[in-house]
Nucleic acid binder design. Structure first.
Lengths: 155, 155
DNA sequence: ATTTATTATATCAAATTTGAAATAATAGTC
DNA sequence: GACTATTATTTCAAATTTGATATAATAAAT
């Protein structure tokens, strides 16, 4: 049986999480915009930069975009010359998105400044506190994912 | 001078935060949808239920909606019979959004089930860990807000 | 009393996201 | 090899969000 106070605490946690997340996101979104991108585009740039060429559906699952949304954002970035599509050799259903030279130069120039902006956004915590926060968030997130998969598989 | 490792830690924190938040949000969005609302509508219902009638611009600033967005969502909820607009007596620029009887009944019926769904989403943590997480998130969020206001005022 | 600045809401077009097909390729089974 | 199920991407319309501007009311200053 679930105690009532515990549910109340969970709801409180979620309100605090939502508020804190949006405060931090404000910095992030503002920084993206300053560099001429929306958050989705920026996330794609970062993903391709850090992880290399990605299958379109991987982009979707990592950034929580539906398939149509991936097509949309990639189209735009291709039009801007930041990204190219590369069909997979072994599976003709699959298409990779890959940074162009221009895309790489762009993100390399922006990334450090963006990082400083974000660093400022979380400057309320000491390194030790950040470490603790990372642990708790990971633990919470992992279980949320697990539970969601469990739910989804029950359909 | 900022040490490089600290920035890296901050970036790591932000990645973990984003991922953890979206894992939890998946539960929240799914729950809203199950009850026939999108997250924005649900948030408005909850806000009006917990805080009573709100000025439209208060709704906007709390839920991070631009004024056009507030008009849009309130229009829809008025059309659904969940909310009414009430002009302010003392300031004719101001309009309040207020739950109708139907709106109140709806949220009262949904809220407990929604709360249980969310409680499940954060079940990876013990009450003590939740308490600690709340503290850290609050501290981080407060400073992020302060810094953002500081930035904004410098324009 | 006018003027000026600020605040609140609405309007509207453009950008973005969502969700439901449609299309095409692969994998597994018989 | 034909049949069925699954996976990947695109297409398209509808829903939602964003951003700029318009309208109206209040507040502050002269």
């Amino acid at each position: 049986m679930i105690k009532n106070g515990e549910i109340e605490q969970s709801m409180h946690l979620l309100r605090v999480l939502a508020r804190s997340y949006s405060s931090v996101s404000t910095h992030s979104f503002g920084s993206c915009k300053k560099f001429g991108f929306n958050p989705t585009e920026f996330a794609v740039l970062e993903l391709l930069y850090h992880k290399g060429p990605q299958k379109l559906n991987e982009i979707g699952s990592r950034l929580l975009l539906v398939s149509g949304g991936v097509t949309y954002v990639v189209d735009k970035m291709v039009a801007a010359g930041l990204v190219i599509r590369e069909p997979c050799q072994t599976d003709r259903r699959v298409i990779y998105a890959k940074l162009t030279e221009k895309g790489r130069r762009t993100i390399e120039e922006i990334a450090p400044k963006h990082a400083e902006n974000l660093h400022e956004a979380v400057s309320g915590l000491t390194p030790a506190e950040k470490e603790k926060l990372i642990d708790l968030l990971k633990k919470m997130g992992k279980e949320a994912e697990r539970k969601w998969k469990e739910k989804s598989s029950r359909i």
